[in-house]
Design a protein around this nucleic acid. Structure first.
Lengths: 345, 345
DNA sequence: CTGAAAGCGCTTACAG
DNA sequence: CTGAAAGCGCTTACAG
């Protein structure tokens, strides 16, 4: 005999009463409840999750799906792990546990998600790196799994999402550069269909227009969102004639490779060319000259993600209705010296 | 009706046969099996994990426990996520899924593990950052959960572990420095009871002895295993009289803070003091002058961890008996310029 | 080769 | 306030 039966036997009461006592149900004699709680503590009894899940239809686990290819790991810096602290802080208050689900490199993310959903390993899910068209969103909607997408997408329609304020960054960066006299401002763009690329380029274009500058497709440099992508972007940058006087990066790790390539060409950021990075990240933090970039609290973003998710979950809906909405997450300018030079006009 | 019942009904056969067909059991008519497989594919049927787990007593999930405090995340660089790729590559071959279990900051790691074990969320587990005395190991042994500790410990006795070759690093580093004429070689040590500190200092001491140098406790600098710990260590280093001519770091992120502090004091690594870092990591890779450190493949280490774990798991024992042993994981010297100066004697 | 049935460990109406 | 019983979705002896 084991599990709840063993505990019940030891206390000489029924398993039903043990369960009710442990689950804070009303109508349990305070004295009985106390005995049960003490015995559970003493024997380290915790309900077997499989039995519980099977009966209740919920697992009390929330999943954070992340890609685990060497490239994305090498280049995600602390982004995802940085979210877990804040998420946990909120989730543990509701007896929910967070697990990170690393999608194997060889497996298609959609197939992986399909499998996780069908197995019912988690009650709810955070997905990220949303594509412009992202079948994962349709899958989760169809499966009726509560989820929040970290990143906008054209798929899905009315699903819940939180996204970084790419528009704000593009606006701020372009305005800053224009104020310093720049008129040929290059921008990097990711290679795939990831949605942030579309958003960023659009915001960049309208920020230019607002400043009376026209969009020049030759100034959009496609490069992978990785460190070496930054290197490639710098190489491409050097071939553009006439050379842009400034460049805005779309991804945090790119600055490192870009600095490297520029150094090889004898070009100093902040003196010979203005560079504005994206997210302030631990790895890009020590670049010299200091990179002008944008700061956000991963911990706070993690909290917000968890709260937004809770607003969608059947048991928790009430307390989190303030969070039942989509959200653009602001970033704050962290000025460095990488864009501190003026173009004479 | 849902799940396997629905599928069985649609095929007009019993759920038992459906289950047997899906689970590759013998004694199923090939024709029947084919029909079942096709129908499952068509409807996207995958067995509910809770039902399965409850019946079989296994979850088909392997957990990798990681600490999720802001500090450890900020300072773990890509270490844990780097392991997941290799682990997954091995585990997926056995229909096992990997989840990362981030232990909330506020929660005691032992309590967290206790809860995870009792809930039976995973079949097997990797733990890391082992302490010299580590109750988690006793807990897992008692609970009879197959596990591999990433890091040695005095707890537990005959449990399975894999650890980095701290002895090899200490030997190599000391020999290298002595060959360059250094005789006052400082070393950093972690503050807590984490086991690698004990191992490293011991290995450092005997490497000194082998080179005819005696151990001087004043040259052991206690500092947190973080970036700012490196900064603190450098500050401490500068107060030692006479100043050591070399320092060996015990943790990858420390080099960054150390370089910073040394720069403030106008001291250049590789010229005014020799520095040997620990693991080659993405973030320390761009230090100038280049840091002499030690390289390892996280992907390979992840594979080894998974294989060693599989050798302990009831269903998989046979195929992985080669891995049924503890292992010291080698690191390879990655020479830089941070230790390239000679002490005249 | 297949079906009917038991049972994994829980939670929760229901009856008392 | 408590107990007896049903049933969540599976897998697996067992019988045929």
């Amino acid at each position: 005999m084991k599990g709840i039966h063993q505990l019940a036997k030891h206390l000489d009461i029924s398993i039903g009463t043990v369960s009710r006592a442990l689950n804070d149900k009303p109508d349990v004699n305070p004295e009985t409840r106390k005995r049960v709680l003490e015995a559970a503590e003493k024997f380290g009894y915790v309900a077997n999750q499989s039995g519980r899940s099977l009966r209740k239809g919920t697992t009390n686990v929330v999943g954070l799906m992340v890609e685990s290819s060497p490239e994305s790991i090498e280049n995600s810096d602390n982004f995802f792990s940085g979210l877990t602290g804040g998420m946990q802080a909120v989730l543990t208050q509701h007896n929910l546990d967070l697990v990170m689900l690393p999608c194997p490199t060889e497996e298609d993310p959609l197939e992986y998600l399909k499998r996780m959903v069908a197995r019912r390993l988690v009650d709810a899910m955070i997905i990220s790196a949303t594509q412009r068209v992202d079948p994962r969103i349709d899958l989760l909607i169809k499966a009726k799994i509560p989820f929040v997408a970290l990143g906008r997408s054209t798929s899905g329609g009315s699903h819940r999402w939180i996204d970084l304020d790419f528009e704000g960054v593009a606006n701020s960066a372009v305005d800053r550069l224009v104020a310093h006299g720049h008129r040929r401002i290059a921008v990097t763009a990711p290679c795939g269909d990831v949605n942030l690329g579309h958003i960023f380029i659009e915001a960049y274009t309208s920020a230019l227009a607002r400043n009376g500058l026209s969009f020049d497709p030759a100034l959009v440099i496609r490069a992978p969102s990785t460190e070496s992508g930054g290197y490639q972007a710098a190489s491409a940058l050097l071939t553009i004639e006439p050379r842009p006087t400034a460049v805005i990066l779309i991804y945090e790790m790119m600055a490192i490779g870009l600095y490297q390539r520029l150094a090889q060409a004898g070009i100093l950021p902040g003196k010979d060319i203005a560079v504005i990075g994206f997210r302030e990240s631990p790895r890009a933090k020590y670049l010299q000259p200091a990179l002008t970039c944008y700061r956000l609290s991963l911990n706070d973003l993690g909290k917000e993600l968890a709260e937004t998710l809770l607003a969608l979950m059947p048991n928790q809906i009430d307390a989190y209705q303030d969070h039942a909405r989509n959200r653009i997450w602001p970033l704050e300018l962290a000025p460095g010296e990488s864009d501190s030079f003026r173009v004479e006009s």
